[in-house]
Design a protein around this nucleic acid. Sequence first.
DNA 1: GTGAAAGCGCTAACAT
DNA 2: ATGTTAGCGCTTTCAC
Lengths: 331, 331
Amino acid sequence: MASMSDVARRAGVSIATVSRVLNNNGKVRESTRILILKAIKELKYQPSRVAKRLRSKSVSGNLLGVLIPDIKNPFYVEVLEGIEEVAYRNNYALIMCNFGQDDQKERLYLEILQSEGIDGLIAAPAHENDLQLKKMVKEGLPVVCVDRGLKDTDVDVVLVDNVRGAFQAVEHLILAGYRRIAYISGLSTIPSSLLRERGYREALAKYGVPCDPVLVRRGDSKHQSGIQLCGELLDLPDPPDALFAGNNLITLGALEEIHRRGLKIPKDIAIVGFDDMYWSSSLNPPLTAVRQPAGEIGRRAGELLIQRINDPKRTSVQMMLNAELIRRKST
Amino acid sequence: MASMSDVARRAGVSIATVSRVLNNNGKVRESTRILILKAIKELKYQPSRVAKRLRSKSVSGNLLGVLIPDIKNPFYVEVLEGIEEVAYRNNYALIMCNFGQDDQKERLYLEILQSEGIDGLIAAPAHENDLQLKKMVKEGLPVVCVDRGLKDTDVDVVLVDNVRGAFQAVEHLILAGYRRIAYISGLSTIPSSLLRERGYREALAKYGVPCDPVLVRRGDSKHQSGIQLCGELLDLPDPPDALFAGNNLITLGALEEIHRRGLKIPKDIAIVGFDDMYWSSSLNPPLTAVRQPAGEIGRRAGELLIQRINDPKRTSVQMMLNAELIRRKST
DNA sequence: GTGAAAGCGCTAACAT
DNA sequence: ATGTTAGCGCTTTCAC
């Protein structure tokens, strides 16, 4: 691959001049600019992002990190897609780090990202109290969090109103006449699990529906735990007549278990999921769900990050997007 | 962030020696090694992958590129997960490029990857005849293709026996008694679409089932085209009694349309999809599908790539994995 | 066994 | 308006 000095030699100028036309700064005579442009074209020259990144912290290296807990989760895929969209538009490449809810792996990835000299990071951290990430923020790395924030730390966050979303889901169930409403929660270390539980309780409270503790089950946010916990609920002597599933994967797991038992939705049991999927309408019956605008979360996060890279001092914002209940046929 | 020279100074040695202990090459007295290790720990030194990458083509920069057509497609998500798994195990970071079936975007991403100095690339190219990618291969970039190869080019490829997979799916339909079997194809520029169509035709031929051209529809591999084309088929004066869907997204689209019309599966129409999803059992009825071992495709591709990076001269291989028909309840 | 120094491709400060 | 040069952090000869 041709380098800047190749271009310079071919155009009969110094590399500094080449750099100038490349970055459009400094004055360059039109005639030499044309000469250089020609040389660039002829040599098919492409600047090395690596060299640029190494050279100086002061200039953008056009590289962003994305740290997500579980790429199997369609929610994160959509967030990722949103991020990618704005990153690409702004000429940033993306390093993808999927830590699979594994703290150790998250730590290692964070180190790698640092070592890669990324300009900024979008993360859904394992905990609100992620020391390493907090440290990186303090040291000045531009970070924006999605889905969950960082305690006592000044970062941009973009998320959804989990309490309200959950509240709407459960309220909808209550108004439809269900009374024994179960909640399958994801990992209780994740704030959103707790917030959704709060929404669940608030809705029950508001309508005076008693909250039976056996109807609240906590798992690990994954597909398998949806199957497992849904099974436990169904095995109860007095099983629930409706289910509020804490996330995507749990919903899918619960659905699998319900179908396996040959139960009819919503006759035998109703279900509403937190997180919509673009193919929720393909389910049978089509799923009622709380839709987080995942793509927009990603896009917003990307935009905030780029803003922060360009203006590291700007005050941090928390952007709360609205979650909307999509009524289909499962309730 | 501490650099090598910080470590060297602290340990009272030269950076060359530090480099030696870091890379475990050259002789270093045990006592100085310990000294250096101590300094590294104290300074929390982390080598810069950027500098390493810039420095020399001869040594691995620990960076891989992944180029995929559509991250919305669960198949690619699973492939990606497999790749990520082995990349991580081997200390490679991943640059993710989702080109969304857009040729222009693919080209730009390829340029970016080159400019990032990646050590290797895993790609599902837009066409078998991707000039730019072919050129990069010829110039010596280690590449492995997944899902589709590169014409007249010597690359590693890992994919699935599409003809056989499709054949099994359609044969299964025929043996179950269906006769008007439709095929909704993805983009006809993608080899797998054509191969699956071939499997479809071969199965019909083998059992002497006439092949009605109106039952073969070609779309763009996306969700929306599944909805659209399935609708067209259902509107036929003599509609199909079974459907073979060319990929994941098409299946989901078709399902949506079928449910929308209140049709019963498999009574009114049977469906078998190409590509299984981990939540296919959550569908109602659980979906019969041809399962590509997507995670394994990704892992294999990752392994092949790393092998090739370490041994650029080794002869290229084509690895064809088996696709398996999973019989559930939709047929 | 260890150090000095060149150089990867680039930017930016300083000269001219 | 253009050139020279000093690094960025590292690997790798080549000396000693």
